[in-house]
C-alpha cells in the first residue's frame, strides 16, 4: 500500500517539476521569439499588439534598416567585423598567456612562487571598471585611444583563466612527461608549445569560448576607448539603435536587434554542450 502511494506521489512530483521547467525554458525563448516575429512586422502592426505569427514586412524592414543606418558612419555588419577583429586576438592572447602563466606556476619551483600565486588569486576579484579612468588617461598619454589595442592587450592578464588552467594542469599533466622531454633535449619553451599546449586542448577550447563571448559582448570598455564611428563595435551599434532615426520605426528596431543577436544565438546552440559543461566546471573549487 505504502509503496504504491509513494510511487504515485513521486510521479505527481515529477510531472509538476517538468511543467515548471518547461515553463522556464519557454520563458528563456519567448523574448527572442517575439523579437524574430516583430522583425517581420511593420511598425503599425507592432503598435497594435503582440502577435505570435510571422508578418510579411521583413523585406520592407530590411530596406528601411539599410537606409536608417546610412547616417551612422558604420553598418551593422561593419560593426560585427570590428567586434570580431577585437574578440579573436583577445581570445588567442588570453588562452595562450593564461596557459603559459599557469604552466610556469605549475611545473617550476622558484622563490616568490607562493607570493605570485597569492597575487593572482587576490586580483581575480578586481573588476576592470574600478581602474577604467586611469586606464583611459593612460591610453590617451601613450596615444592608443580610439584604437583596438587597449581592448586587446589586457587579454594577457585574465587571472580567472589562469586559475582555471592551473586547476586543469594539476589533473591532466604529470611532470614526468616534461622530464622525458628534457632528456630528449627539448627546450623548455618548445616543450610548452609542442607537448603541454596540445594536452590542454579541452581547457583551452572551453576558456576560448568564454573569452570570446566576454569580448564580443563587452560594452563598457569599447564605449570608453572608441570614438570614431567607423571603429564602433557591435554593442556600440546596439546603443545607436536607441537613436531617434530608429525609434520612429519599431519594425526596424526589432530587425536590427535580431541581426545583432543572431551570431551569438547560433553560436550558443552549436556549442551549448561545451558551454554548459564549462560553467559547471568553473564553479568547482577544489
Amino acid at each position: 500500500m505504502k509503496i504504491e502511494s509513494d510511487a504515485k506521489l513521486l510521479r505527481r512530483r515529477k510531472i509538476f517539476r517538468n511543467i515548471v521547467l518547461v515553463f522556464l525554458c519557454f520563458l528563456s525563448l519567448l523574448p527572442f521569439y517575439l523579437m524574430f516575429v516583430n522583425a517581420t512586422r511593420s511598425s503599425n502592426e507592432i503598435k497594435a499588439g503582440i502577435s505570435f505569427l510571422f508578418g510579411s514586412s521583413l523585406s520592407a524592414n530590411l530596406k528601411n534598416f539599410a537606409s536608417a543606418q546610412v547616417g551612422l558612419g558604420i553598418t551593422v555588419l561593419g560593426s560585427m567585423v570590428n567586434s570580431f577583429k577585437i574578440a579573436l586576438p583577445f581570445t588567442v592572447l588570453s588562452v595562450y598567456f593564461s596557459a603559459l602563466t599557469a604552466y610556469g606556476m605549475y611545473a617550476y619551483n622558484f622563490k616568490l612562487k607562493k607570493v605570485a600565486w597569492g597575487f593572482i588569486m587576490a586580483v581575480m576579484m578586481v573588476p576592470t571598471q574600478v581602474f577604467a579612468i586611469g586606464y583611459y588617461r593612460f591610453m590617451i598619454q601613450i596615444n592608443l585611444i580610439d584604437t583596438y589595442w587597449p581592448l586587446i592587450i589586457p587579454a594577457i592578464t585574465t587571472p580567472a583563466v589562469v586559475f582555471f588552467m592551473r586547476q586543469y594542469l594539476q589533473g591532466a599533466l604529470s611532470l614526468e612527461i616534461i622530464e622525458a622531454a628534457r632528456i630528449d633535449g627539448s627546450g623548455e619553451f618548445h616543450t610548452f608549445n609542442t607537448i603541454v599546449l596540445p594536452l590542454m586542448k579541452p581547457a583551452l577550447a572551453t576558456q576560448a569560448i568564454f573569452q570570446f563571448v566576454f569580448s564580443w559582448n563587452n560594452l563598457f570598455m569599447p564605449t570608453l576607448i572608441i570614438s570614431s564611428s567607423s571603429k564602433k563595435t557591435l554593442t556600440m551599434f546596439v546603443q545607436m539603435l536607441t537613436a531617434e532615426s530608429f525609434r520612429a520605426d519599431y519594425g526596424v528596431v526589432f530587425l536590427g536587434l535580431a541581426i545583432t543577436i543572431l551570431p551569438m544565438f547560433i553560436m550558443y546552440f552549436i556549442l551549448s554542450k561545451f558551454i554548459v559543461e564549462g560553467v559547471s566546471l568553473g564553479g568547482v573549487k577544489e
Binding site: 525563448l29 523579437m35 563571448v213 546596439v238 546603443q239 545583432t260 553560436m267
Partner: peptide, 20 residues
C-alpha cells in the same frame, strides 16, 4: 541548455529588446 542561454546573448541587445 535553455535556462542558461540568456546569459550568453549580448546583454546590450537584450536590454534594448525588453525596452522595445
Amino acid at each position: 541548455v535553455l535556462v542558461y542561454m540568456p546569459n550568453i546573448i549580448t546583454a546590450a541587445s537584450i536590454s534594448l529588446l525588453f525596452y522595445a
